[in-house]
Amino acid sequence: MKHSQLFIDSLFNPKKLAAYRIMPIGKVIQYVFLLITVVTVFSFGQFTTGFSEDIFNIDGIADYLDDIQWLLYPFAFVFLFIMTSLLIFARISLYALAGYVLAGAMKRRGEYRHIWRTAAFAVTWATLLSILFSFFRFSDLWATMIGIFITIGFIVIALIKYPKQPKK
């Protein structure tokens, strides 16, 4: 399956996310790293355009930073990529934990690894909205709350399509 199809289904077809729970983990991780790359490139673009002398009022520091920008930018990009990876994987894992609890409450059969895959696709909207909200200087609290609501909503819709637990 192509990443573009996964992206479109992640945005517009939350019911298919349940079917993607049996997808190989390598393909899911590739998709997550594509999201991470998009966020990192966007954040790095903001870093390079917003990194000016306005931030530093001391002329000596601004001159020093102008001299070492060629060295600063590659390290900043790598650091940003690593931190973004850490944060997005942690976010997906927390959503998967919440989904695992919800699956038990909904009497649905789902292992954590399957729900993790579903959460990895469900986080697409929250990721894109965080980029969009940064353009409009939207409140971080509200942006986070909207992202959580949408992601949990997608996970719940996907969990409805998970098989029911057998009756005892």
Rank of each mutant, 00 (worst) to 15 (best):
A105I: 07
E53C: 12
D63G: 02
S130P: 02
A62M: 10
F44I: 09
A105W: 12
G99D: 04
M1A: 09
V78R: 10
V38R: 13
F33R: 11
L129H: 03
G50A: 03
K168V: 08
K161C: 14
S43A: 11
G60E: 15
G45M: 10
Y64N: 14
A158I: 10
Y95P: 01
R137G: 05
T37Q: 06
F44S: 13
V28A: 04
W125Q: 03
I148W: 05
I22M: 11
L128P: 05
V39S: 10
A76M: 02
I146P: 00
R137S: 08
K161W: 04
F77D: 11
F42R: 05
Q30I: 11
K2P: 13
I82E: 15
R117D: 12
I25M: 12
Q5S: 10
L71R: 14
W142C: 06
T118D: 11
M1G: 00
R113G: 06
K107N: 00
K15E: 04
S4V: 07
I36L: 03
S10H: 03
G50H: 05
F135V: 13
M23S: 02
I82T: 13
S93Y: 08
I155T: 01
A158P: 06
V78I: 14
M106R: 03
I68C: 03
G147W: 15
V123M: 09
K16E: 04
D9C: 05
V39N: 06
F81T: 03
I88D: 12
K2T: 15
D9T: 09
W142E: 02
P166V: 09
D66N: 12
G104C: 08
L87N: 15
F154S: 08
I146S: 06
A126S: 11
F42V: 05
V78A: 15
E111Y: 08
P166Q: 07
I8F: 02
I160L: 09
S43W: 15
V101C: 06
R108P: 05
F51D: 15
F47E: 12
W70D: 14
H3P: 14
Y162R: 02
I150M: 04
A119K: 00
N13V: 06
A122M: 01
M145S: 12
F12Q: 02
Q30G: 06
D59H: 13
V39P: 01
T144M: 07
L159I: 08
Y20Q: 04
W142G: 09
S134I: 04
D67T: 06
D67Y: 09
K161Q: 15
R91S: 12
